[in-house]
Amino acid sequence: MEPLIEFLKLIFTALVYPGLAFLTILGLVSQWYRRKLIARLQNRVGPKYVGPAGILQPFADIYKLLFVKELVTGAYTPARLILYLVILGIVALSASTALLPLTPLYIRAEYDVLVFIYLTFYASIAMSLIGLGSVSPYPGFGGVRYATMLLVFEPVIAISLISMVKVLAPNTLSLADALSNPGILRAQQPLQWIFHVATIILAAISFSIALLSKTMLKPFDIPEAETEIAGGYLAELSGPALGLSILLHEVEISLYVFLFANLLIPIPPILPAPLSIVMSLIKYFIVLTILVLVAYSMGRLKLDQALRALIKVPLLLSIISLALSFTI
């Protein structure tokens, strides 16, 4: 009986809180926030009509797309397969939230940061296969561009994540430990503390640059590139496939930024208590604001420029931070 209850709890975690439902709401609210912020930067108003200050606009968009009965797509696109991949990506991201200490039901184990890295990799594969799998020129360009960047940003994100977790939870390398009981607070000697902070800063720089390219924010928005390749990887999709792809994108941004914000500012640690969750959401919005402001003050890079940029700065820095995190 007990395993069944445990399993049902896990399903609840994955589908409701902090999984699918929570991530969806967080993702769509942050989409609204992002759009408002960008609109301010560009002297526009942004979403306005649906809900107070237009906050329900992203929800309305997704709702409309999800319940369209007809999926119009390209001549060769295996639409149902792509639909499955997108849903798999969303569910994998939702399931990986079970590793975060947001509810008393969270799971922790030694080395579970690797589980997180490989579980969320499903989302990246889904993203690149949406484009490549559409079998059409524009989405193909988008998919190629995403897959090319994936070459660098996946290792960078993984390396900097491991080095941050290595600093915060040196013995267990558990994501939950790093978030709920960060070891940086226990550092005794000033030298050790300096090493810790240096690692976190280097890893944070490389992580945030790689994050911009993983989530296709401004200087790295080459896979969608509205003005150039007509929405890129999304060009052949419509209806539920399009809605879910947008949702996948938003969920990915919010999950990674949430994780990043709480690893970067480990004080106060997140615990399964309401106040600490509010605090971590505040951290989330602060980091999101900074990321969006930095991102949207830049123009789009070309693919080879982006690849060079990704290799030159973040890859190098992340390896240095990994080395630092192992020397303590």
Binding site: G133, V135, A147, L150, L151, E154, P155, I159
Partner: peptide, 30 residues
């Protein structure tokens, strides 16, 4: 051995693009 961790992660990431080259025409080709 942190350098080996980095090597394993980097080579997996690079190889993924190689495997995508195989997956793409055989599963999605027209």
């Amino acid at each position: 051995r942190f350098e080996l961790v980095a090597v394993l992660l980097a080579s997996s990431g690079i190889a993924m693009l190689g495997y995508l080259k195989v997956i793409y025409p055989t599963l999605f080709g027209s």
